[in-house]
Amino acid sequence: MKTIPVSTRVNGDSVEFLCAPEETLLDALRNRLGLTGAKEGCGSGDCGACSVLVDGRLVCACLVLAAEAEGAEIATVEGMAEGERLHPLQRHFIDSAALQCGVCTPGILVAAKALLDHNPDPSDEEVRYWLAGNLCRCTGYDKIVRAVQSAAAEMRGA
């Protein structure tokens, strides 16, 4: 089978891997790089469980080909904490009990970080609609919105 060599950066580290032409970025992250934080919830870009950043843009990794990662900067949930020090979003998700089964959590954290990166002071409405592409079956979303808002407040230095 034909394979494609890919050079990319994942969470700041240079990474090289071989992939099949039809292989998704999600499969490459999970199966070749051992980064299983991003999950396959639907495989069709509707649930957001595989959310990652490609060059700062929020994407569903199940809809991106691994080969498209060539030369790109990929950010996944595994890169959010700095060593043992959790990102404020991660801390507030724990403290606000904004997670249950945890499968949607990595994608939601990545998506929420993308929101706060360009809008540090979102309204509840903006949070709710920004995260509308990240399905959660457990929590009912209330604590998720509150966690994002309290993390945003902390990050603003409020």
Partner: peptide, 12 residues
């Protein structure tokens, strides 16, 4: 918090 909360938020 949930006993796995730290693992959940780090993707681990």
């Amino acid at each position: 918090p949930h006993d796995s909360a730290r693992l959940h938020v780090t993707g681990a």
